[in-house]
């Protein structure tokens, strides 16, 4: 088993969120799944927006809370943006046919991924967002294999 790579980053501004998003966008490949964790308002959608931008997605990114998933195909890779907040567990995710995207031709970013963790690939990239000491500060933990 490959060694886990864990990194903890402090970001202090929207500008740094943007830089992190672009950095991640450069690094991801087709088939990657990003499990995004973090409480309300920690900036999951904001980070997703910058990852999308970094991929070259031109459309506006909104949280797909009601549609569960949105597809964006204008970037370097297809992006499947999930918000699974309203789902009960992983089986709900499979029931909407998500499985075909998970090892597919694009990148999946899944907000509230802890809810559906049991059906996500074991080698998903985990990104956890937490509040820092100051209001605009966030602690980002990234763990990948």
């Amino acid at each position: 088993m490959k060694k886990l790579k864990k990194r903890i980053i402090r970001i202090k501004s929207e500008e740094e969120t943007r830089a992190l998003g672009f950095l991640i966008a450069k690094d991801i490949e087709a088939g990657d799944v990003i499990a995004l964790l973090g409480d309300l308002g920690t900036g999951k959608t904001a980070l997703t927006r910058y990852i999308a931008k970094g991929l070259g997605v031109t459309e506006n990114i909104n949280s797909p809370t009601f549609t569960i998933v949105k597809e964006y195909r204008s970037g370097r890779l297809p992006l499947y943006h999930y918000d699974v907040y309203k789902l009960g567990d992983g089986n709900d995710l499979l029931d909407i046919g998500a499985e075909e995207y998970l090892e597919g031709d694009g990148v999946c970013i899944i907000e509230w991924a802890d809810i559906v963790a049991d059906v996500l690939p074991d080698d998903a990239i985990i990104i956890k967002l937490e509040y820092g000491d100051k209001e605009s500060e966030r602690i980002v933990t990234i763990e990948r294999r």
């Binding site: 499979l94 963790a117 690939p121 956890k128």
Partner: peptide
Amino acid sequence: MRLTEAEQRLREGTLSSRIKNL
């Protein structure tokens, strides 16, 4: 032909434990 939910839970993946241990 999918595993039942119970069976799936039994083999709850390493991702869940990775999240817990983060």
